[in-house]
């Protein structure tokens, strides 16, 4: 019995590893492609800033699963939220994520983007490890959590120097909701205020 169990366990681990490497390579190629796309976009001075922002937004929306991230980031409050609140929140979350990353990436111009490797996680996702090398030689480590769904790869989390953007944002949003008396509306109001502040 034990022998059988051990054998099947070894088999499972082995097949898991075998699948992992293939998926890892695929995910690494996916990240390299996105990286190159973003860098050409950022260093391309022939298009207008508006056009740049629009293209950048397109990359974010097609390559990130903003809806799944938004859902995760709302955490324990997702189940409490009404359908209306959910939609409202997701729309605002998308706007805030796009504007946040647009400003963040616009500062990284002369940096080099390198894919270092990948790691298959036990939940079926792949974490691609990348590095942004700054002109002075210092590097920033960024990990990207990628899942494949219906034959399409998408980014589900960004982990900057070991800090998961989704987890920190979930913690922040939970704090905002708690301060607002446990109402999701408090977060929606705050996000509306923020997007109004940034668009002005």
């Amino acid at each position: 019995m034990l022998k059988k169990f051990l054998l099947s366990a070894i088999f499972l681990v082995w097949t898991h590893e075998a699948i992992a490497t293939v998926e890892g390579e695929k995910a690494e190629a996916f990240m390299t492609e996105i990286g190159n796309k973003v860098i050409t976009l950022l260093t391309n001075h022939s298009i207008s800033p508006q056009e740049k922002a629009a293209q950048f937004q397109d990359v974010l929306e097609t390559k990130f699963n903003v809806r799944a991230i938004g859902k995760f980031v709302l955490g324990r409050y997702w189940k409490q939220a009404s359908k209306e609140e959910k939609e409202k929140f997701l729309a605002l979350f998308k706007v805030s994520t796009v504007s946040c990353y647009a400003t963040r990436f616009s500062e990284y111009t002369s940096e080099k983007f390198e894919v270092v490797g990948s790691r298959t996680e036990k939940d079926g996702g792949v974490t691609v490890l990348t590095r942004i090398v700054r002109p002075n030689g210092q590097s920033i480590l960024i990990d990207w959590k990628i899942f494949e769904k219906k034959g399409e790869m998408r980014i589900y989390d960004v982990i900057l120097e070991g800090i998961s953007m989704s987890i920190t944002q979930r913690s922040e949003y939970a704090s905002v909701i708690q301060q607002g008396g446990g109402k999701i509306q408090a977060l929606i109001t705050a996000l509306e205020k923020k997007s109004g502040r940034q668009s002005r």
Partner: peptide, 16 residues
Amino acid sequence: ERVALDTPRPDDDDDD
């Protein structure tokens, strides 16, 4: 030792 399990994941309701 690093793993990233506590992250967003795909589910049935996350398609745009």
